[in-house]
Design a protein around this nucleic acid. Structure first.
Length: 456
DNA sequence: ACTATCACG
DNA sequence: ACGTACGTGATAGTA
């Protein structure tokens, strides 16, 4: 949990002994008085030369006790809710297994991609859609099965089986085994894992609790408030696009946020050259996907895969997008140029990510580095921003009994004593929206309820 | 230990 | 012609 090496960004191996939990480092320091000193002397000049002292001293280090409190507090889990869901899913999984067996003509392990390939591509003679990443076989992932579902019922059943088996195995049955005697689960947050400066969460990961499917969402009902409390969830609205608007200094994008517009609708209106009121839901959906694509570093192929657009149509969409948002294009080119010239890209608070592959002769590697050069300043600035908010919120909440319990990249969740609810809602909104002064307003959406599902 | 898959932002 | 969106972590199967 000592966050120093993420600030250096190179020489990780030499200083990897810095990656020990805080309590272990304390233990080592007690046994070996030289430990902390050697660590400090090796790293301090590097941090200072890189201009990273403010980020270290004002963000990463103050965040440590905040995360400690969140980890120690944990979140109350209603294991009864999960036990009921487990039984329902078990029953449905057995039904699906039976139906799949009937269609295949024999029993097989649906979890085995090898056995599934044999059924799909040898027995049923369905068309293959490409190899897996490592080329060890034919892909059977979600997008492949969705295409095959038009040709046969079995792929659709496998998709349903996969969804339910994932939810049951990773969350519904796993989480109850990880509660403490008080019925609470405690994650570990890591400050030095994600290359962009985001936190990561493990054992258990509480940053990937399902929400996208209806069955998955129900799992959030098991994350409940403590007695006498409610859960309050606060999430940044469109944080990465707002940061893009600020960094790129694009007038159209800034205006959309200044007016609190529906930014995807505005993008569709700009690119398709129609009035806001004439934007169809299809146009808005494409624009929404395109806005994500922009943040990740666009490719026409990638956009075409995620939409109904052909590669040519996707290319035209992107061209038009850059005509309407020229500063966004300039930002992207500038970020890639910076990576080439300086060897790294930076977030608003100066956090660095080194990109040696930006000079690679291998086009695939080089273009990957270019997309990282585009994405990291955006994703990393969002990480900077919420960390600042967390530190200020933690300080402001010190006199209160309510607790910050979860961080999910652009969202904070609080276990709030009922009588403190108005107070906490006000201070959370104020500190999140005021964490940084950008050229666009920051907006936070709040919700509360007896569990995480109803708080969103 | 590695691979494929899929959960989240 | 080529391979293709950014960042993570957990699970099950397989070698």
């Amino acid at each position: 949990m000592i966050p120093i090496d993420s600030l250096i960004g190179s020489g990780r191996k030499q200083i990897s002994f810095a990656e020990v939990p805080v309590d272990k480092a304390t233990e080592y320091a007690a046994e070996d008085a030289d430990f902390t000193l050697r660590l400090y002397e090796a790293l301090a000049p590097k941090v200072r030369e890189a201009g990273l002292e403010p980020l270290l001293l004002e963000v990463e280090q103050p965040l440590v006790p905040v995360l400690m409190d969140m980890e120690r507090t944990g979140v109350l889990l209603d294991v009864e809710v999960l036990a009921k869901q487990s039984k329902v899913l078990e029953k449905r999984l057995v039904e699906i297994e039976h139906d799949i067996e009937t269609l295949a003509g024999y029993k097989f392990n649906i979890n085995s991609t090898q056995q599934l390939q044999k059924v799909l591509f040898e027995d049923l003679k369905l068309p293959t859609k490409g190899k897996t990443a490592k080329g060890t076989g034919f892909a059977t992932g979600q997008s492949v099965l969705e295409e095959l579902a038009d040709l046969h019922d079995l792929p659709r059943l496998v998709l349903e089986y996969r969804e339910l088996a994932k939810l049951k195995g990773t969350y519904i049955d796993a989480l109850p085994t990880q509660v403490d005697v008080a019925g609470r689960v405690h994650t570990s947050y890591h400050q030095t894992v994600a290359a962009t400066g985001r936190l990561s969460s493990q054992d258990p990961n509480l940053q990937n609790i399902p929400v996208r499917t209806e069955v998955g969402r129900q799992i959030r009902k098991a994350f409940v408030a403590s007695p006498g409390c409610v859960l309050l969830a606060a999430d940044y609205s469109q944080i990465e696009l707002r940061i893009l608007a600020h960094i790129a200094d694009d007038e159209t994008l800034k205006e959309a946020f200044a007016n609190d517009e529906d930014v995807h609708r505005r993008t569709a209106s700009e690119v398709y050259s129609v009035a806001l009121k004439d934007v169809t839901s299809e146009m808005r959906a494409v624009a929404k996907t395109a806005n994500f694509a922009i943040i990740y570093g666009v490719s026409a192929f990638g956009l075409s895969q995620q939409t109904d657009l052909s590669v040519a149509e996707a290319r035209e969409f992107i061209d038009t997008y850059f005509k309407r948002y020229p500063r966004v294009k300039e930002y992207m080119d500038g970020s890639i140029r910076k990576a080439r010239e300086e060897g790294f890209v930076s977030t608003l608070l100066g956090r660095r990510r080194f990109l040696p592959e930006i000079h690679s002769d291998n086009r695939q590697r080089r273009e990957f580095a270019e997309r990282i050069a585009i994405n990291t300043p955006i994703q990393g600035t969002a990480a900077d921003l919420i960390k600042v908010a967390m530190i200020r919120i933690h300080a402001a909440m010190a006199p209160l009994k309510s607790r910050m319990i979860l961080q999910v990249h652009d969202e904070l969740v609080f276990d709030v004593v009922t009588s403190e609810k108005e107070n906490v809602a006000e201070l959370v909104t104020r500190e999140m929206e005021g964490a940084m002064q950008l050229s666009v307003p920051l907006k936070v959406d709040l919700g509360s309820g007896p569990n995480w599902l109803e708080a969103k």
